[in-house]
Simulated scan of single mutants.
Amino acid sequence: MRGMRASRLLSTLLLLQTRGRMTAQELADELEVSVRTVYRDVESLSAAGVPVYADRGPTGGYQLLDGYRTRLTGLTSDEADSLFLAGMPGPAAELGLGTVVATAELKLLAALPAELRSRASRIRERFHLDAPGWLREADQAPHLAEIAEAVWNQRVLELRYRRWAKPREVTRRVRPLGVVLKAGTWYLVALADEDLRTYRVSNVLAVQTLDERFDRPADFDLPGYWQEWAEQFEARMRGQQAVIRVSPEAMGWLRALLGTFAADAVRASAGEPGPDGWVRAVLPIESVRHAHVELLKFGGMVEVLEPAELRELMVRTAGELAALYEGSRRILPS
């Protein structure tokens, strides 16, 4: 408790140093304590010789004597590590580092000269990272903080995990090496026996941190591993192929509607344009049904040539759409 109060007193002092005058209610909101606690903390600061004084009245508040600056701005090791996530408050909070990040930023701002502090505030006002992709919510990963702590402390984990293959639920003992945030979804990279594996954290049903510690492989490179794994994963997901004709207009929409991997594959396999500007190309697909949905986004800008099953499915859908809209046109008022 004494350590918590000391940390809160320091936070109060740094808030007043970085923001100037603040009311008791504003301090209470920032520190997540009661106004009465703020009163007691300010009295303690004054008793310790900190020149903090109160302005009375409806627009009053607490502030430090002009020119006073504390030198107690040293970052703890956890706070210094968390600065790499300072632009990602949401993911930092999911990892259990939200409070640490906020305290680190406050200490950093307090240590900066006035002109740099103003610049830092402008950056916060003008740049924001929103990790999840469009039209989807971020995964719910209730065990993320415990997993991240085990990664940091090099502790072996026992996971109960839900997967696609049967049996659906399995138990795995793993050595966690890192966590990755990809478009709002968290993944755990870990050693299971001697094999590197990737687990979707939202599919972890239960986790137990064991007393056993492990040594990280000296040559393990998390960003390098993730890039290679992600490329292989997308290639596996798109293990089939379709032959298509692509209009010049559709070429400009490939990346937006199909993603980088598929768009690059189409461009790389594209032949010479015909008299109408259309090109013949090969599209990696996950399945006929999945490709059917993806290619409908292009309307009449893409024609499927092969496989026959996919072409027939596109023809049937086009006929159903034509009949639907033709029927709608007959019943619409003139």
Score class of each variant (00 low, 15 high):
residue 1 M to F: 04
residue 5 R to S: 08
residue 8 R to S: 03
residue 11 S to M: 05
residue 13 L to M: 02
residue 18 T to A: 10
residue 19 R to V: 02
residue 23 T to A: 11
residue 24 A to L: 12
residue 30 E to M: 11
residue 31 L to G: 10
residue 34 S to T: 13
residue 40 R to L: 07
residue 42 V to T: 09
residue 45 L to S: 00
residue 49 G to P: 05
residue 52 V to P: 11
residue 57 G to E: 00
residue 60 G to P: 01
residue 64 L to W: 15
residue 64 L to D: 02
residue 68 Y to I: 02
residue 69 R to M: 09
residue 72 L to V: 07
residue 75 L to I: 02
residue 76 T to V: 05
residue 76 T to D: 08
residue 79 E to T: 12
residue 82 S to C: 14
residue 87 G to T: 14
residue 89 P to V: 06
residue 98 G to T: 06
residue 99 T to E: 13
residue 100 V to W: 08
residue 100 V to C: 02
residue 102 A to C: 08
residue 110 A to W: 06
residue 110 A to N: 00
residue 113 P to T: 12
residue 114 A to S: 08
residue 115 E to G: 09
residue 118 S to Y: 14
residue 121 S to V: 12
residue 123 I to F: 08
residue 126 R to P: 08
residue 127 F to Q: 10
residue 127 F to V: 15
residue 128 H to M: 15
residue 129 L to I: 05
residue 132 P to Q: 04
residue 132 P to Y: 03
residue 136 R to P: 09
residue 136 R to A: 10
residue 138 A to F: 02
residue 143 H to K: 08
residue 144 L to M: 03
residue 146 E to P: 02
residue 150 A to T: 01
residue 150 A to S: 00
residue 154 Q to Y: 07
residue 155 R to P: 04
residue 158 E to T: 13
residue 159 L to W: 06
residue 160 R to P: 02
residue 161 Y to Q: 06
residue 161 Y to W: 07
residue 162 R to S: 15
residue 163 R to Y: 08
residue 169 E to Y: 10
residue 171 T to W: 15
residue 181 L to K: 06
residue 182 K to D: 15
residue 183 A to M: 00
residue 187 Y to L: 01
residue 191 L to N: 06
residue 193 D to C: 00
residue 197 R to K: 09
residue 203 N to Y: 02
residue 204 V to P: 01
residue 207 V to R: 07
residue 210 L to W: 04
residue 211 D to E: 06
residue 211 D to A: 12
residue 215 D to I: 14
residue 215 D to N: 14
residue 217 P to D: 12
residue 221 D to P: 09
residue 225 Y to L: 03
residue 229 W to R: 04
residue 230 A to D: 14
residue 230 A to S: 15
residue 236 R to Q: 11
residue 237 M to D: 04
residue 237 M to A: 11
residue 237 M to Q: 09
residue 241 Q to E: 01
residue 242 A to G: 00
residue 243 V to H: 05
residue 243 V to P: 10
residue 245 R to W: 02
residue 247 S to V: 13
residue 252 G to N: 07
residue 256 A to H: 12
residue 260 T to N: 12
residue 260 T to D: 15
residue 263 A to E: 10
residue 265 A to M: 04
residue 266 V to W: 10
residue 266 V to S: 00
residue 272 E to V: 06
residue 272 E to W: 05
residue 272 E to G: 01
residue 273 P to R: 08
residue 276 D to Y: 05
residue 276 D to M: 05
residue 281 A to G: 03
residue 289 R to I: 05
residue 291 A to I: 02
residue 295 L to C: 02
residue 301 M to A: 15
residue 302 V to P: 05
residue 303 E to G: 10
residue 305 L to W: 15
residue 306 E to Q: 11
residue 310 L to D: 02
residue 317 T to E: 15
residue 320 E to K: 05
residue 334 S to K: 12
residue 334 S to T: 06
